[in-house]
Amino acid sequence: MIEIRNLKKSFDDNEVLRGVDITIHDGETVAIIGESGCGKSVLLKHIIGLLQPDSGTVKVDGILIADAKEDVLYALRRRIGFLFQSAALFDSMTVYENIVLGLWEAGERDEVKLRQIATEKLGLVGLGARSLLDFKPSSLSGGMKKRVGLARALAMQPQYMFYDEPTTGLDPVTSDQIDYLILSLTESFSTTSLIITHDLFTVKRIAKRVIYLNKGLIFFDGTPKELEQSTDKTVVQFIERFVK
């Protein structure tokens, strides 16, 4: 379970989070939406301890992130899969090395087993038919990079999956493919999933709950259907483009 209480964060004079409270229960699939720069990614980075709050607390499975010792924090992170907005593949490594790095660092040295896991995870993300293991990320398309990033996150068999704008910058067809991929992975592995997006199509397809972050505060918390039916002016303005 993820518990966020009165989370505040500023960068210089820019107050990004102004007191956010969220509880995410195990097995939930939650989408966090909001305008660019409203603090969605900042919120996600607080949950895995990449950023420290100015005030407030973040707890994951009872572990207080800000006070956690380094080894506890790293052990927790190994249970969390993170798909970055830019995929964030290590460009000096091959696809295979990217996928198995976490396992290698966790002590797995059996090359045959590692190769088998990498092939299996690439299959899960729809790249099984192509032998990409020895490719460098620079030779992959944007959609393929996202899929490899997803395979890397899945290699650790995470209990939580965080997706930071999984379809941003992709064409509509690839966006749809990524959406259905996330949906099938969420259903197959029963992970607790948190999706940061401003793509309402993604929200409708994947999320069971949606949180709308506005000006550093939670403005809406409900189901995608409730969001669509909302008559609040700010919500309507945000979702208008997608409803039309």
């Binding site: 993170f82 970055f84 964030a88 593949l89 290590f90 790095l101 966790a106």
Partner: peptide
Amino acid sequence: TMKVTEQIDALESLGISPVRY
């Protein structure tokens, strides 16, 4: 370059210390 392309964050998210690595 690793920092601005989130590769350092990716290392952290895999439970790998960038200082050690």
